[in-house]
Design a protein around this nucleic acid. Structure first.
Lengths: 334, 334
DNA sequence: CATATGGTTGAGAGCGCTCTCAACACCTTG
DNA sequence: CAAGGTGTTGAGAGCGCTCTCAACCATATG
């Protein structure tokens, strides 16, 4: 089994350069190409990536950074789905992927990534408002695409949805169906999504001249926090709740059921994400659909775009969609 | 920002070789080392991995191959936990990880992996009896560690549990508590785990001179298949069921409840895996605990061991433990 | 004082590939 | 027939690093 270009060249009676041309699609006469290809195939040659990238400065390997606790990464379908979208595009582009999870501190992870050389670029989830890892990647000379972004990341390449707008839309829907005391359960404080969705809610309420006093309860993007926050809101008296995501909403639903309250009769309920289970709740949940899989695949595409034109930031704002189900409009849509 | 070793060498007034020695821990006088380190730090130099691996033939990057559908990968806590264990050790060893999922056919994935050069070795899940991807990796010159293994992989390095023995143990437990018509629901046909667990069940039954006629139902390692198979076994008449994994057992439990049968009064039930939810079922499930996280971390360690001594296959058989809960021994242990 | 010893250093040859450049053969054109 | 393409090829430099080898220095030893 021939191992290097030189071996192959010798075997086919041409120069190393010509073999390289055949492999990389340079100008070669049809006759020579055929001859070399034959040798190539019969020896199942595999180019040495290290050498290749040393010579041409590209490796075909991109980094994916999801700095969350590994257990959470898999419990939360959001990250899983994101990764799925990413790998689909990477597989298609024949690119390798290196994955960093939250096994180490952000500082250490950053160090490892930058030290790893060998990466053409990275995709990083940027869910927190404050994030030294994201900051570090952005100031480095490594091409970087963010999934989610902060207001301050305007120079950066990112893929995101307009959380403010989407939250505004779903809140307006609750107003449109006649609700007036609409509570909001936030996501985890410090995340961009939580802040933006809260903002969207506040915007819609303010426009409708509705009070939000005592109607905002802090949550944590998960079910238990939904139950807890629902108690506070229900005690305060609400006729609708917009939860910052579906998991939280499912907690709310549990508490509503425990109190024997009708949905949407007594309290209308809406979530955010439209994960699979949202349509299987009882009643099915009105929510905002955002294509998480598309987040991943678009982020990968954005990175390839950025690699092709390094000084043109790629900014992708993906659409969201209000999905109306029985948790806000009773059985009429069944 | 200095970029190459040569730059650094010039800045510190020594040769490139000496700087390299400082970085890689070669013999250098304390004085020189200090001087170079100072320059090194003030310029936050990062060695070029491609060049380094070209020169010394190791990259510090290992591949992880889990050829399952990406959605399944995350639904099934088994793979998630495995990955978690792997990343823990890789992070500790400062190694990079490239991940391949089932986005492509096995043949194509194999091609990509081998073509990627640049990998020091791979860890691959080998759950199927027939698996061209695993076969291909084993015959390649890429150091490979299997998670799970076939009888035919005796030359290979692997990390596994003794499924036959564990299944034998749990079956014997059912016999010991006085059950005689013990049914088994297999895992997915074609997987090593399913075949081995079936074998362990058959062994224990044969030793106890108990019949297994009509007592084996095919399952698929998931809850729906558990429900389905439970119906068949219950119709055939059983006083105990050993399900090939916990997910299947949870399906069985559902069917038992639907029929109003008491557990373990009418039918005793045991699973395999001891995933988190096993202890939270009602009643809590007797099962086999296998440290899935440890599978991952041990596989990573085995690969590093294999890299250090390439001709010494690493074979790790991890322990399992019978965890007895109320699904087999009533409330007495509560 | 010659020689051996051990620690420290630099020169330089690769690692396997890409890519530029010049050389060459063969056509076309004036 | 000279001049100028056009297409194809090989030579060779260079990517940034590691590692061997020989040189060097200071010190210890006979």
């Amino acid at each position: 089994m021939a191992r290097t270009l030189d071996d192959l060249a010798q075997l086919s009676g041409v120069s190393r350069a010509t073999v390289s041309r055949v492999i990389n699609g340079g100008p070669v006469s049809e006759q020579t190409r055929r001859k070399v290809l034959q040798v190539l195939e019969s020896h199942d040659y595999r180019p040495n990536l290290a050498a290749r990238s040393l010579a041409k400065g590209r490796t075909g390997v991109i980094g994916v950074v999801m700095h969350v606790d590994p257990p959470l990464l898999f419990e939360d379908p959001y990250f899983a789905t994101l990764l799925h979208g990413l790998t689909d595009v990477l597989a298609e582009k024949a690119a390798g992927m290196m994955l960093w999870l939250g096994n180490r501190s952000k500082e250490e992870t950053l160090d490892r990534i930058l030290g790893m050389g060998l990466l053409d670029g990275v995709v990083v989830t940027a869910d927190m408002v404050e994030d030294p890892l994201v900051d570090g990647l952005l100031v480095s000379d490594l091409p970087t695409v963010l999934i989610g972004h902060r207001r301050t990341d305007l120079e950066a390449s990112y893929v995101d949805v307009d959380n403010v707008h989407a939250a505004d839309t779903v809140t307006r829907h609750l107003i449109d169906i006649g609700r007036r005391r609409i509570g909001h359960i936030t996501g985890r404080r410090g995340t961009v999504a939580a802040e933006d969705r809260l903002q969207g809610y506040l915007n819609a309420m303010r426009r409708a001249k509705l009070s939000t006093d005592g109607l905002v309860a802090e949550g944590d993007f998960n079910q238990p926090s939904g139950i807890e926050a629902a108690r506070r809101l229900l005690d305060a008296g609400v006729d609708a709740i917009f939860a910052a995501n579906d998991a939280t909403a499912s907690g709310v639903l549990e508490e509503l059921e425990a109190r024997g309250l009708a949905v949407p009769g007594d309290v209308a309920l809406a979530g955010f994400d439209d994960l699979d289970f949202a349509s299987e709740l009882d009643p099915p949940l009105t929510t905002i659909r955002q294509g998480v899989h598309a987040h991943g695949s678009e982020a990968a595409r954005a990175l390839f775009g950025l690699l092709d034109s390094p000084h043109t930031p790629q900014r992708v704002l993906l659409p969201t969609e209000l999905v109306i189900r029985q948790s806000t409009v009773g059985g009429s849509l069944q």
